[in-house]
Design a protein around this nucleic acid. Structure first.
Lengths: 349, 349
DNA sequence: GATCTAGTCTGAATCGATCCAGAGAGGGGA
DNA sequence: TCCCCTCTCTGGATCGATTCAGACTAGATC
């Protein structure tokens, strides 16, 4: 049986409050007594106030939850997620808070329960998929603060993100400028449970993942502007947001029928996967990514940069010390088109 | 004021126990009453039992702590750490546990306090530096289980790791086999607070970080075997375990005086940094790494592979459901020498 | 000498749940 | 009819601390 604060109090012959004060409010008792208490505690092997009991009484935990909508162990397959996490960690560290990474079960009810069971003071919701509604709802009903990075924030929520649609449009315009007209758009989980490869998406509204939807919409905008409409675009769905999944989606039969000259990916990892497959098949299509992760530069991937570390850092800051001014609750980060070598001009047909 | 379980009980007109059972032991009450309780709870906006209170009473938290000895935000600068974390996340996910990433202050007292304040059921201590003693001590006095990956585990502790020294020796032997005799060894924090670049290390025992020490010892073993002794080796210290730090250490004045033909790094990230600097300076030395992270293959880095994801997974498993057999508390993982192109034969002098 | 103040320390209430022994009610078997 | 068993539900103790108003002491002030 581990000794408790009470045991220490009895051993020293003081009240529990005093022992508590010895740990949490050294100015409330004489240094002499404090020393005696601490000594006795050490001797008894008392490790200091129990964190859980302390949290219960104090009403805060000292940890913020980070919620990934895909499986937690996938959180690290995309270096962009890692960048985000780095930023969150920076802010948390400065603030002295811990980071609770919560695995979310795939089903909505399970996810809800996971959110309800997390002992934290607030949440960073990263890259909200379709489940985000349920999750945010659960957080809200717990009355905890949260920050989203979702593509379409509510006005009253704290948010840090980018203009997904405009950013996507910027790469796509780069491609139209290079003469590409028949292209494939590559994204993670375009439709739920789709096999890797081409999928029919009648209407963009059918795409459940908001970020994916916005990016695809941005791509579509650029092509619409040069007279290529949605139905002429090939949509490739990957099973998850990873390099192998990108490779598999592009490698599926009929993924890239003849007239296609370029692949626009919704994430660099997917683009890198696409490049893997194309290299192997010795096909030379233009490929673009999204995020500008570290691996993008060495292979010359043309992409859109978004400041990942900063995104995480500002999100956590928004949570940990929110600005008094409510107008500052939403932070729009800049994006930049980074032109490298992976996407050259379309071959003249 | 958020409603509590008590409030729900009063609203429905049942005891608190019954409401509690409605959430945690559905078989203990009639479905009819349970439905009524849950409905009332929803209506009142009661989000379910408070996780902190529940943890206090139940005596467990449902989270495991992951301790990085360097700053938490640096935890993600080394992809190997990310691999480890992925593995831990996999096991945690399967077990339904959360992951608490705890930022450790640089000072021992602060680190101790951080450990004492973490609300978790156990710890994974990753890549223990010199501070590990203090940390493990703090964990032990809390009476919590833990797993280390340290280079020199105590027999009674749970551990998963590799034979650091033998693994390091294997790359080094590869280099001696290629004729390299005058080399530099590159490591993170060889001596506390050393500036980037060459440092004098009279005795390996002076190196505080056990993993670094073991790897350097392994390198030294191989060179000793061909008659090159410790004093003839150049030791380069990096300020932290990251690619830029590796580049800086190698780029310092006098880091690589003339006869040197190879750089043996204690981590792939450092090796990649070294390659950056060497490429820029147009010097063609042999370079080897350690870990075999994803970035190693594309640049042809010769290195030692250790199974990172598996390391994390097994560590977490050891924590979450420990084998009954105490002999199975220590798991030695295999390493493999991966020969690529970054280290060719030494030029004939 | 009475009053005030500052410095220490105490006791009881409280945070929000879970657990366990046991009370009542209703049904079945002898 | 009586006893036992099962199914529901209750009350009170408990997890391990923090908090806050107040008690007590001793020295300072007038």
């Amino acid at each position: 049986m581990k000794p408790t604060l009470r045991a220490v109090a009895e051993a020293v012959g003081v009240s529990r409050s005093t022992v508590s004060n010895a740990y949490s409010r050294p100015d409330q008792l004489s240094t002499e007594l404090r020393r005696r208490i601490l000594d006795a505690a050490r001797e008894m092997g008392y490790p200091g106030p129990d964190p859980t009991a302390r949290s219960l009484r104090r009403g805060y935990v000292g940890a913020i939850g980070v919620l990934f909508t895909s499986r937690l162990s996938y959180a690290f397959t995309d270096p962009f997620a890692t960048q985000f996490l780095t930023g969150v960690a920076q802010a948390a560290e400065r603030h002295g808070s811990s980071l609770l990474l919560v695995p979310l079960p795939a089903d909505a009810a399970g996810a809800r329960k996971a959110v309800e069971n997390a002992a934290v003071d607030g949440f960073c919701v990263y890259c909200g998929g379709d489940e985000e509604g349920e999750i945010v709802d659960a957080i809200r009903s717990r009355g905890l603060p949260f920050v989203t990075t979702s593509a379409r924030p509510r006005a009253e929520d704290r948010w840090v993100g980018i203009d997904e649609r405009a950013a996507a449009r910027s790469v796509a315009e780069h491609l139209t400028g290079l003469g590409h007209r028949r292209v494939a758009l590559l994204a993670d989980r375009v439709l739920p449970d789709a096999a890797p490869g081409p999928v029919r998406v009648g209407d963009l509204a059918d795409v459940p993942h908001p970020t994916t939807r916005e990016r695809l919409a941005g791509f579509a905008d650029a092509f619409a502007a040069v007279g290529v409409d949605w139905s002429q675009l090939t949509i490739l769905s990957a099973t998850d947001n990873s390099r192998p999944a990108g490779a598999a989606a592009v490698g599926a039969p009929d993924s890239l029928p003849e007239p296609i000259t370029a692949v626009l990916a919704c994430a660099d990892v997917l683009a890198l996967g696409a490049l893997d497959t194309l290299r192997e098949a010795d096909r030379h299509l233009a490929v673009t990514g999204f995020d500008d992760i570290a691996e993008a530069a060495p292979v010359g991937l043309t992409t859109v940069r978004q400041p990942g570390v900063q995104k995480g850092r500002r999100a956590a800051e928004l949570l940990l010390d929110p600005p008094v001014d409510t107008d500052a609750h939403q932070i729009l980060l800049p994006t930049t088109l980074v032109v490298r070598t992976s996407a050259g001009p379309a071959p003249r047909s």
